[in-house]
Design a binder for these strands. Sequence first.
DNA 1: ATTTTTCTCTTGTTTAAACATGTTTTTATT
DNA 2: AATAAAAACATGTTTAAACAAGAGAAAAAT
Lengths: 204, 204
Amino acid sequence: MPKSKYEQIYKSLKKRIDSGEYNEGSYLPSENTLIQIYDCSRNTVRRAISHLTMEGYVQPHHGKGVRIIHSSSDNQPKYDYLITDAEGVYATGKRYGFSVRNKVIAFEELTIDEHLAQKTGFPKGIQVYFIQRVRYIDDVAKMIDTSLLRKDVVGQMNEKIAEKSLFNYYSKNLGMEIATIKRKITMVEATPLDEKYLELGDFN
Amino acid sequence: MPKSKYEQIYKSLKKRIDSGEYNEGSYLPSENTLIQIYDCSRNTVRRAISHLTMEGYVQPHHGKGVRIIHSSSDNQPKYDYLITDAEGVYATGKRYGFSVRNKVIAFEELTIDEHLAQKTGFPKGIQVYFIQRVRYIDDVAKMIDTSLLRKDVVGQMNEKIAEKSLFNYYSKNLGMEIATIKRKITMVEATPLDEKYLELGDFN
DNA sequence: ATTTTTCTCTTGTTTAAACATGTTTTTATT
DNA sequence: AATAAAAACATGTTTAAACAAGAGAAAAAT
């Protein structure tokens, strides 16, 4: 059914990652190996890998290999891991004439435990930045934005940076590394922590 | 400063688009022309174009050319045009254990007038699908989702399709055409139309 | 004049080769 | 043994060439 060869390879690799044949955290077979496996040219392999990279399945590391950063336990599409960060809302606000700003209410480093691994799809044991920001629209808190950022990927950052758009930081300082950000917007059911910051009125 | 040649070309083209030297709606110079302009190989040109495509700046049309779908008047980043559709919320809901569903409250075809061109960045005169969906979370309407979809790009669609995830439709039926969707989430300041459908409680 | 065919221009896919550069292992040197 | 150089292997960039396929214009046939 897939017309092109690179698409076949792309889907094959994706399947192997989803099924757990290729474990998260490990590296894909090298390009030369994949060339032999799929009997094709290097360009074609690289094109397939490029697609996986764009979707946040893998992360190339120059000189080392292509790391798998996708949890097989997570069957959901990966599109909410892509670049859907605050910048979008900023831009939206500017166009529509209301103000948007973020306030960092939590900035911690923590280690993924069993529970978080289940919820986020991150592998247990790795360290992440836990960032929660309140999003104010016209000076009223409207949602809480929770982000988990792999420390091994994003490197150093601090609270001041998080205050501004996360996206700006990543695009400028880390290039294409953005795709490895897994994030989630908890826009309903304020948790106990949330309630302190959200002015939900009779909404909740 | 840009290290690689394809990145230089990418930025050069982007600049020309942003500045209005290349008008939206028109086509980029053909690959062969760009090869001469930038004195490079076809692959390098295509790589630069590929980047622009990913970011929603242009849209390749097989056999015809690469169309510019970026309004020069719009200086905001293009990331909110990418794949940030309902599917993300669906997935979020599944993971967090609350239900999400959409209801289509408006499905019309309309032509972009001056006012809409200003707000959306679409060129005046083109036809678009105007779709509004209420997003219910745990059976309570929480936000209205407004999408404008270029008719010339997305082709045919109907109300039933919109009822489900827009994303599913596009990914299955239109492949990578998704990048041309410009959308906006009006999450605040319910308009008169919105008020009929949103149960905002004392929120509004 | 209308239809059909052909040609040309466009983007899409694939292969091959060369060189650059980052990473690790092995080897040689001290 | 510790250090430095070299080799091997990884991905990154660029070029060249060939063929496929969509779109439209020009030419040929009816």
